[in-house]
Amino acid sequence: MAILGPILGRLLKAAITLLAIAILNFFLIHAAPGDPAAVIAGEAGAADEQMIADLRAQFGLDQPFYVQLARYVGNVVTLDLGYSFRQGAPVLDLILDRLPATLLLTLTAFGISLVGGIAMGVAASARVGKIGDSLLTGFALLFYATPLYWAALMAVLVFSVNLGWLPGFGYETVGANYTGLTRMWDILSHLVLPASTLGLFFMAVYMRMTRASMLEVGQQDFVKTARAKGLADPIIRRRHILRNALLPVVTLAGLQAGQLVGGAVLTETVFAWPGIGRLMFESLAARDYNTILGVFLVSAAMVIVFNIITDIVYRLIDPRIGHKA
């Protein structure tokens, strides 16, 4: 298939980019005041010269610079992201432990915002200038202007504290030991509030963009052609206008998708959601360098992965891409 060639090229570039990020990581470690051995020794509380020297030998910090670099890159390539002395566990395990929760939250929010935003945008553009359009645009402006943390707190206050409909924090009911469907249902009910607060802002962005894009594409010549064929308006809107109008929305969605791992720090903190964002926040507060760098590397890898996915989606929607002569 014609789509595979460019994707292979992209994967090659992605590998090179990741390598560059790993090397940048390495320099970041070395740019931090004191070397990791001193940091660890400092964290341990009691350290003498001998212990630091031992630690240096243990971590290979007494080796020449290039040997250290090669070793670090080698570690990254073999997925060894180091050990978190704070948490007492390998960084990779910590991240893999938190990743599903974060992806569940951010992907759900992403889905809500994309589907809701596009649907609202299409609905508004079909009623442009009428009351429905004004209402939808007004709602979008409201979501857009509301700070995320405020919306999150209000959501907890209203739906959890006052109405008691939904749990206000956490990933699942602690100590309930649900299994199977009951557990899934429990997690879902915990998911509703954080996912919708996180999704609202981007829903507003997608709505506005879809609406503007639909109106612009609606002016183009081929839409008149479609009408001259005798097609009904809903079909013209879906088949001719929407597909062309989606192109800028996909671009924006690709940018947002890059934030899926690292972009939920605030939401995770407010809702006590055990995801990567909180891991990063905690590690920052605790100066847990290995973990921070691990999260950094994984986030970067995710950005690259979603970029490639965006590229594929773009190629699927727009046949002209990759054919430009």
């Binding site: 010549d221 052609t225 479609a226 001259a228 064929k229 005798g230 088949r239 597909r243 062309n244 727009d318």
Partner: peptide, 23 residues
């Protein structure tokens, strides 16, 4: 609408933009 494209059809000036680029 039923008449358009069936009993009366129309072609336009700009062939470059009169077709849906994605279809």
């Amino acid at each position: 609408r039923a008449m358009r494209g069936d009993r009366v059809a129309m072609i336009f000036q700009e062939p470059m933009t009169a077709l849906n680029p994605l279809m």
